[in-house]
Design a protein around this nucleic acid. Structure first.
Lengths: 243, 243
DNA sequence: CAGTGGTCTAGACCACGCG
DNA sequence: GCGTGGTCTAGACCACTGT
């Protein structure tokens, strides 16, 4: 049996993808649509939730349902790569960044291989494409505050471009642990995505030759906008590179 | 304002995680729970949908809501790795496998860098942990059927262990594209997961030194059970290895 | 303030699984 | 047939946004 809300979702999706309703435009109100389709608001809302899950529609409380701009696909490149150069150059990523001192708790202590309670510096950043946030990064470095000349003051544009690259050039090994899950409510609101949209979570550990962890980064990307690429080369005398 | 269904979800989650309701057990019926919490069935169902999204509860139509077994975490290792050895050895992965001949369509043709309509061999496999499926793999190799001695007949146990490793030892480069999304209805039913549970999708391309693509693999893992690890080494004369 | 989405109710009827 | 979840209704009231 075909559920009514699926038919409605299909109809709205067709209107959106064929350009009948354009990106950025507001859909009719939920009560209006419900009346139009002759269904209850609950049914109409479950139709919209399908489209939300597909990232086609963004709901804004008190304003309406809006057709999302088809997000530019961003590529996260594993290892020593950073964001795809074409994309990074094209979109003028803006980053709000802040550094704070924290203590290593259980999980972070294990990641960084430092004792519980060790001092860490946390860099928190959100990157934007236009006015739409598209990634969260929390980067932890063992030890206290960096010298000011390295970090910079105020909104540090220098730090901006490094946000997704490994901070420490001395690192000899980068390990990236990738998982897929739904966002926490905090992450969903920070990224302005629907709680039903999958995210790509990457935990990146950079270590030196002695196995000391130089940096741990917790990265969160919306699944509909970002894919991660890892390239591995086989030959002995060849170091891996990225596209 | 705290939504009632979140409170209920929290309460049920606590009962599950503290062992009040054990894995495999059935929860009281939705109408029973709704009566117990003095809410409507719709509210109670939205509480359950929170737990479904977390993978704690599995709904089975006509039977009830069941607490899921906390899945053993599986690690997919990028590059030349395969599944984490400890896990693979421990859990006796069983695989249903089948090989068919297909033609390269647009997407596959691009991945494999072959003309549209080229012959491909498709290996389709589902791996199980116990009686619970935990991954889907579609592997495409250019060309027609392999010689029988290479592929084997019947339920090929040999092929089983190779399902997540790169098939062709001649490959010089492996590229893995990782994304997070919700499963298609097909994938959700094949993996027996809720449609709201994020999956980790990995497209793996193995090429030889001449850039010829030897194999393309489309892998799908439930996000709550699998994480992928990629390790990159820096030094020039060092080849990368996996943990 | 008016209009929007967010949550919730108290039912109804349908589809599935099992005895 | 009976109990389960799946879908849906026709409202109600609350919370958020903009004027």
């Amino acid at each position: 049996m075909r559920a009514r809300h699926h038919d409605i979702a299909d109809d709205l999706r067709r209107q959106i993808t064929t350009g009948g309703i354009k990106p950025g435009e507001r859909l009719p109100s939920e009560s209006g649509l419900a009346a139009g389709y002759k269904v209850s608001t609950a049914t109409l809302r479950s139709a919209l939730s399908v489209l939300q899950g597909e990232g086609l529609v963004e709901k804004i409380h008190g304003k309406g349902n809006f057709v999302r701009h088809r997000p530019r696909q961003i590529t996260y490149v594993g290892g020593w790569g950073t964001l795809d150069p074409w994309t990074a150059a094209e979109t003028a990523l803006r980053v709000t960044d802040q550094a704070t001192q924290v203590e290593a708790d259980g999980h972070l202590a294990a990641l960084l291989r430092v004792p519980n309670g060790s001092p860490l510096t946390e860099y928190l950043s959100v990157s934007y494409e236009g006015d739409c946030p598209h990634s969260l990064a929390r980067i932890y470095v063992p030890g206290g505050p960096e010298p000011k000349e390295a970090l910079g003051n105020g909104p540090s544009y220098l730090h901006t471009e490094a946000s997704f690259a490994v901070l420490n050039a001395l690192s000899a090994e980068v390990r990236e642990i990738v998982s897929a899950r739904l966002p926490t409510p905090d992450e969903a609101s920070a990224l302005r995505i629907n709680p039903g949209l999958a995210i790509l979570a990457i935990t990146r550990i950079a270590a030196d030759t002695a196995g000391r962890v130089l940096e741990a980064a917790l990265l969160v990307f919306p699944g509909d906008r970002v894919e991660a690429v890892f390239t591995t080369h086989h030959a002995l005398n060849e170091r891996q590179t990225q596209a």
